[in-house]
Design a protein around this nucleic acid. Structure first.
Lengths: 245, 245
DNA sequence: CGACGCTTTGACTATACTCAACCCGTGTGG
DNA sequence: CCACACGGGTTGAGTATAGTCAAAGCGTCG
């Protein structure tokens, strides 16, 4: 595993300093924010806290790479992580970003197998980790956690299959339009969408090129469906129109 | 739900007659073949058997359609089921086929939501069903089942993300080549691949058109990597070559 | 035998990629 | 404070890829 961590600790209640953008979390609040744990009793939380181990990764380091054995669950407490894959022909595709509270490593956690994706820290990052065997014991002891994880998995699977179908059947222009609409849902009721990543990354995420993103956005703007306010800000002028792109 | 089943029964140990192709299973062997259950004790199996309910679907009927509430797990005991989605723009994409022993409905089983795909019986089909609430109770009572389901989910998620990346980054020709290689892995060591579906369905599965499938196969044949024996049979002549298409 | 659906082939077109040049904003170092 | 380098972003020209539409071949099943 290409982990080259600075510090590893193995004790309860380690606290960090907050960073400027307010995304800081100590280990405990990190754990308690994770949906799969947030229904537990304080006593159970303490038990989990005793199992976790803090790790730090510097910007550019990989939490794991394809081929690494998948035996650890990572929960992000600070920083930002990029999950991406290389296709058989070597092209990179962005799968998703992880922010504090998100977790990864789960994909292969339950099969005895290796990772197929890269998890790269794109900022200095702190994560809480639990080993596979300890996590499995936890699941056997508290079956309600399993149901939470199953719920999370089924949701992600649904998303992934939907994404697959989009790639398989929709034009680039439509994929961009659908992406904008989904961004809007989160900010809800504001007409202004803030792109959550660079257009280069967006291209990778949507399976296209930066050039095509640029061109298609211009086209969509020219027919009056959107207005490009700035590099990252886009105003939605005609939602129904976008849906029919 | 567009279920219009012929018979519904709710008792243990209902037996069916075997059909000609040997895919028949009575309910119990159906259940015991499912990976998520096959580690259980006989007594636990009996308990599960008491929860299941048999349903039959005629060719062409839908087990569920998008918008139907997802509250049932379906386990196929006889027949063949096609899972497909419609994209936002109305194009159909084949997700997978289910054969005896496979299950579906799990996607949204753990989230309180509705189906987004179609499950259509393409032959007369028998399924065993368990309701969401009963299945959840089962999972809480026997946590080891959860681990099996999690394992199955994580594998499927891995597959789905891999498929997404292929669609996002690979050309049609490459997708076809990779599909052939994966088909070969199953039959292992025979050089002859039997396509598991019509080329029309394969086109839908691979996110392309029947015309392109036909043309690309011809091209791959012309450069000597494969030989098309018959409509459904393809002989692999140069595996390494295929990998580099 | 005929009808139907799947498959193939051909001609044409649309879509989006590649490559190259240039622009712009930011951050760095002199 | 300016010059510069760097990376992202945009624009243009040309090309590759695969989709559409149409017609004809083939197989299977009633």
């Amino acid at each position: 595993m290409s982990v080259d961590s600075e510090t590893t600790c193995n004790h309860k209640h380690q606290f960090h300093h907050c960073n400027s953008d307010g995304t800081c979390m100590d280990d405990e609040s990190c754990i308690s924010l994770v949906p799969i744990f947030n229904h537990l009793e304080p006593a159970q939380m303490d038990e989990i806290m005793s199992l976790i181990r803090s790790l730090k990764f510097k910007r550019g380091e990989n939490l794991y790479s394809p081929g690494d054995p998948a035996n650890t669950l990572y929960i992000v407490s600070e920083g930002k992580i990029k999950i991406y894959r290389l296709s058989e022909s070597g092209k990179e595709q962005l799968i998703r970003f992880l922010r504090p509270g998100d977790f990864t490593g789960e994909l292969a956690l339950f099969s005895d197998t290796v990772h197929e994706a890269y998890a790269e820290a794109i900022e200095d990052t702190s994560v809480c980790t639990i080993t596979r065997s300890e996590f499995n014991e936890l699941l056997l002891k508290y079956p309600s956690i399993s149901l939470k994880v199953l719920s999370e998995f089924s949701h992600r699977l649904e998303q992934s299959e939907k994404q697959t179908t989009r790639f398989a059947t929709e034009r680039v222009e439509t994929r961009i339009a659908l992406f904008l609409i989904e961004c809007m849902d989160k900010d809800s009721r504001s007409q202004i969408v803030e792109l959550p990543m660079s257009k280069k990354d967006l291209a990778s995420y949507l399976g296209t090129t930066p050039e095509s993103i640029s061109r298609k956005l211009t086209e969509i703007e020219e027919v009056g469906l959107i207005e490009q306010i700035s590099n990252k800000k886009i105003k939605i002028l005609d939602l129904d129109g976008l849906l029919n792109v």
